[in-house]
Design a protein around this nucleic acid. Structure first.
Lengths: 327, 327
DNA sequence: CTGAAAGCGCTAACAA
DNA sequence: TTGTTAGCGCTTTCAG
């Protein structure tokens, strides 16, 4: 059941049905009414697939994230969705575990589906990959720091946030600080580590022997911090690359029989909802997930509508320290 | 750049290119090679849109959930995705806040996009709605209890889980138990309340004055339990319709200066990751989110492939009590 | 083993 | 104000 049946029932051409529905061409009141009646009677719903083939627009944007189970990303997705829904764009999200193959697979699939725009929180793809696989095939916003200068970019001021956190710890007289990052060269850990390094350098210290690594998960943080706490020089404070890891740090401390923050202070990054729920409350760097998603959406909208045809934009959103009980 | 250019460059017909790519018809090695070369040279990627229009299959299933920020649902999504990805189906998810208008909007949109299957965790739609808007237009699995007998169904044994939890509390000698449900007639709260009612009835008690209600969120649970705790007959235990609300209950207790579980015991439902992270650990009814999603996916697969043409199936997955510190 | 031709359901020149 | 016609990019009969 398609537009032809509606046209037949209403006694008009398919063109007229199309225009009666889209409003892109004037239609006499009588005709409009007959079309509406036919549509209602048949329960007709235009095929988005056929429309997309014809117009070369899918009214879809795709969001790639490493881990949808990390509450940070649903918040991003919501921001993106709210921003683009206003222009009738639908959002689809793919979670790739930061795996290069799956990241590439998702991007390829979305290109095959001809999405109108793509937002990437990528762990594994670099500028060259993007140039090769995406090229100019769709509008692209990259939300992973330091990846590209060819495409639009929306990032948090990660380094600044961590620098503020580390400085806060140092100002409390804590010297034995450590940083728990993700796998080397993967994800936002390194950018955040840079802020940590900067804070230490300002007081004449180095990060030598102060960095542990692990997956960006609760288990990853717990393992890394357990190792740290049982090592030769137990740190008095750990700054983690994200909140999930920081929650893991809390668990590691509890298992080691250490009090937080007295024996070991813990700082996270992101300020996910759970940060306020754990005990003690997690001191963390607030990363405005929703806002990030919203800005990605706005950027895409400008490109898709053709309003914005300038060179790549580079949008940075601020981060700030939220002090709770853990440090 | 489409299949025609590839055909031209390879010196064959578009038919042959199509078959060389799909493997649905034998192609001579020499031709295959020329096609592959042309594809590589042009960076050709078949249009999923055109293919869908032709084949009337989109290789997409949609999942409707009330709240993607509730970690329960990402876990469901993952289960669904893992199940259907094996058959090359892509999963899209829509979060509707349990709002009737948005639920209808999402379903309509997915039908317009001609998804191959639809999984609904709906709060607001009933059998009549589904019959009217979905009809036979796509394969449908309903994962909200008690909504339909016309479509396939995958649900948790909610009542049993809550009954077990309430019985556990009663067996501890706690008599003043209360249940915190969602808004009346909305979502899984009522089905869970039924289990609570059953447990009480078995010991000759009624739920009279023992039920509070609120949105299915941390804030909702906190507000409802705050009211309960400051009321005339303060309960010694609250069973909540989901873990988010139970976390809210924990906060309400803390704010009221009450110890958990000594002054007030708290039980949740779902066993989301956060249940193990809060202090004290949340005693809760485990709701196998991933498994639920997986079963929804398998059911859909059977229908989509035509393997399963029988009457509506009704799959129920078991729940069980997980005892931690909060009760 | 290969190709010509039709058509999926829609929109948009162009023409009346 | 309305209709005719072509075509978006692919797959699939049917014919050779």
């Amino acid at each position: 059941m398609g537009i032809r049946e509606v046209a037949a029932l209403a006694g008009v051409s398919t063109t007229t049905v199309s225009h009666a529905l889209s409003g892109r061409r004037a239609v006499s009141p009588a005709t409009q009414q007959r079309v509406d009646a036919a549509v209602a009677e048949l329960g007709y719903r235009p095929s988005a697939v056929a429309r997309s083939l014809r117009t070369q627009r899918t009214h879809t944007v795709a969001l790639l994230v490493p881990d949808i189970a990390n509450p940070f990303y649903p918040a991003v997705a919501r921001g993106l969705q709210d921003a683009v829904a206003a222009q009738d764009l639908f959002t689809v999200v793919g979670s790739t575990d930061g795996d290069r193959g799956r990241e590439l697979g998702f991007v390829e699939e979305m290109l095959a589906r001809q999405v109108d725009g793509l937002v990437l929180f990528t762990f594994a793809l670099d500028d060259t990959d993007l140039q090769r696989v995406v090229g100019e095939r769709t509008h692209l916003v990259v939300a992973s720091g330091g990846v590209t200068d060819r495409y639009d970019t929306v990032t948090s001021d990660d380094a600044h946030g961590v620098e503020e956190a580390a400085t806060y710890l140092l100002s409390q007289g804590i010297q034995d600080v450590a940083f728990v990052s993700g796998p080397e060269g993967v994800g936002p850990g390194d950018g955040r580590l840079a802020g940590f390094t900067a804070a230490l350098r300002r007081v004449g210290m180095t990060t030598e022997g102060r960095v542990a690594r692990g997956p960006y998960t609760v288990a990853g943080g717990q393992a890394a911090v357990t190792a740290l706490l049982s090592g030769p020089s137990r740190p008095a404070a750990v700054v983690c690359a994200n909140d999930l890891m920081a929650v893991g740090a809390l668990r590691a401390a509890a298992e080691a029989g250490l009090r937080v923050p007295e024996d070991v202070a813990v700082v996270g990054f992101d300020d996910i909802d759970a940060a306020a729920l754990v005990t003690p409350g997690l001191t963390t760097v607030r990363n405005p997930a929703y806002e990030l998603g919203r800005r990605c959406g706005q950027t895409l909208l400008g490109r898709i509508s053709g309003t914005d045809v300038g060179p790549p934009r580079d949008i940075q959103v601020p981060t700030d320290l939220v002090v709770r009980g853990s440090a």
